[in-house]
Simulated scan of single mutants.
Amino acid sequence: MRELMGLIDEALQIPGGVARMHHYYGTEDVMTAGKNWFDGEGLSGAPGSEWRRAELYENTTVPELRKWRINLISNYEFDRSILKGVNIGGGLRYQSSVALGYPPAGDPDDPRQIRYDFSRPYKGPAETNVDLWIGYTRQLTRKIHWRIQLNIKDAFEKKGLIPITYNPNGRPAAYRIVSGQSWTLVNTLSF
């Protein structure tokens, strides 16, 4: 990939060459291959700029990749006394903060000079989620087993928005929706 991108970049730097080729018939004001490769005339995702950004990310914290994830789960089932057949449990899910982008550095008018300040990443929040449940199981007959369980997902979570990516100016570009607490009641018969 490096070799291919290097060849394209070299070809686009030849004065009056490939970089001046128009994408369709027209005058000087139409998009040229060189402009499309590096800035896409204001469109996001210009291949040359995206490749340059990917090269700059080497040996850094990749955006949207969390350093730590921890999942803990526990369940206890009572097997005697008045609570026989009752089970209670919970789960904890933790994710560390996440880099969601970096502030730009360098000359904003020259896409070939794009750099990022990797020492100051835009970060998304660390997240801790708690799930809880309580259930009851009982043998109804020799062949029929009954189980009911109430599950509460994200027990202490509030509805809201969490940023998932940032614009170069440090403002969130996109969010994901946090739906808040939810619960389900599961009733099962086995035979």
Rank of each mutant, 00 (worst) to 15 (best):
E77M: 05
V62W: 11
Y24E: 06
F156K: 01
K143S: 10
R142H: 11
L189E: 04
D29N: 14
Y25L: 12
F38L: 13
Y57I: 14
P121T: 10
V178C: 08
V86L: 13
F191I: 11
G180D: 05
G17Y: 08
T188G: 07
D107W: 10
V98H: 01
Y94V: 01
F118L: 03
V130E: 04
G17P: 06
H22P: 09
E10Q: 15
S182W: 02
D9V: 03
R142W: 03
V178N: 13
N87M: 11
F156L: 07
Y166W: 00
R115W: 05
S96T: 08
K84H: 06
D39C: 14
P47C: 04
L72M: 15
F156H: 01
I152P: 00
K35C: 07
A54R: 15
L43W: 06
G16P: 04
Q149R: 12
R53E: 15
R115S: 10
T60K: 15
E77N: 03
I152F: 05
K35D: 14
P15L: 03
Q95I: 03
T60M: 09
E3A: 07
L43Q: 12
K153C: 01
Y102V: 09
T60N: 15
P172K: 03
P111M: 03
Y25V: 08
L56N: 05
N151W: 07
G26P: 10
F156G: 01
I148D: 02
S119H: 12
L43A: 11
I177E: 11
T27Y: 11
T128W: 05
E64H: 14
E77C: 00
Y116W: 11
M1N: 11
G124W: 00
P125M: 08
Y24C: 02
G170M: 03
R69T: 15
D110N: 15
I162H: 00
K159G: 03
L65C: 04
P163M: 05
I114N: 08
M21L: 12
L150D: 00
E127N: 10
L140T: 02
G34I: 00
L65K: 11
S49M: 08
S96G: 08
I82R: 11
A99H: 04
D29T: 13
G91I: 02
V178P: 01
K143L: 06
N169T: 12
G124Q: 02
S190L: 11
G89P: 07
I177A: 09
A155Q: 08
E64K: 13
E28R: 08
Q113P: 07
I70T: 06
E3Y: 07
Y166M: 05
N71D: 15
L83S: 05
A19R: 07
S119C: 05
Y122W: 10
W133M: 11
F191L: 13
A174S: 12
G85S: 06
V186A: 10
D131L: 02
S81W: 14
V98E: 02
